[in-house]
Amino acid sequence: MVSRRLKWLAAPYILWMGVFVVSPLVIVTFFAFTARDGGFGLDNFLQLRAFAPVFARSFYLAFLATAVCLLLGYPFAYALSRESARVQGAALLLVMLPMWMNFLLRTYAWMNILENNGLINRFLGNFGIGPLQLINTQGAVVLGMVYNYLPFMILPVFTVIQKIHASLIEAAQDLGGNARVVFARVVFPLSLPGVLSGITMVFVPSASTFIISKLLGGGKVLLLGDLIEMQFLGNAYNLHLGSAISIVMMLLVVLCMTVMNRFGDRGDVIYV
């Protein structure tokens, strides 16, 4: 029996959560439903219709980035899982190392490379090609997202694939499955939980970023994060509208994650 008396140790933090977790969300909700002159209503949310293209663009680019991360990260994680423990350890260290550098610096690195007189265009110029417009495009923003968040896809997928018991794969081979069947019917289904957590870990920060779009999109690719930042610190200063956008973003993210979890649960029922 755990001593119930110790529960009082949580009292300071429960108070803290009330002030710093619950009340900020209450305040955001309050601001979202009030106008600058103090009247209650849905005005802020109705204004959001004007920003529908920004919502669409944010989720579209985040979706693209997530898809590219999956297409690059999954084969990488799978290939790595077939290597020796030594190679695995070294490669994982290499994947994690850039994550320890601030993501502003990682994004900034690409500015140098993609610029109109940057490395790529200089190189192409030698062959008489270009200069191509690389920076300040949607492609550059997606590239920035992929570069920053690829490790978030690789690590959970690798962890799950590595845990798949070798005897399961051997059993499938003994039962006559060729390499493709073994992968499609055993390895991939069992790795789905890792894929799903990778998808959420890439999608959520991609959909809510404003740095990558600012540095690599040059203000031409406006995303939801930019919109929020403009309302709170930028020249569009409108805390009420900003709060409304934040609430909608939060709800959409929760919705995405719920859908993902549903998929995950069903996957487990079918395949295990």
């Binding site: 002030v19 977790v21 009340s23 900020p24 305040i27 920060p205 809510s208 404003f210 900003g242 939060m250």
Partner: peptide
């Protein structure tokens, strides 16, 4: 409640703190 700041996008956490401090 403890998980809210973990799963919320950072920008939402930042913005809601700002409003709280305002």
């Amino acid at each position: 409640v403890n998980n809210i700041p973990v799963v919320n996008p950072d920008i939402i956490t930042g913005v809601s703190f700002r409003l709280l401090f305002v």
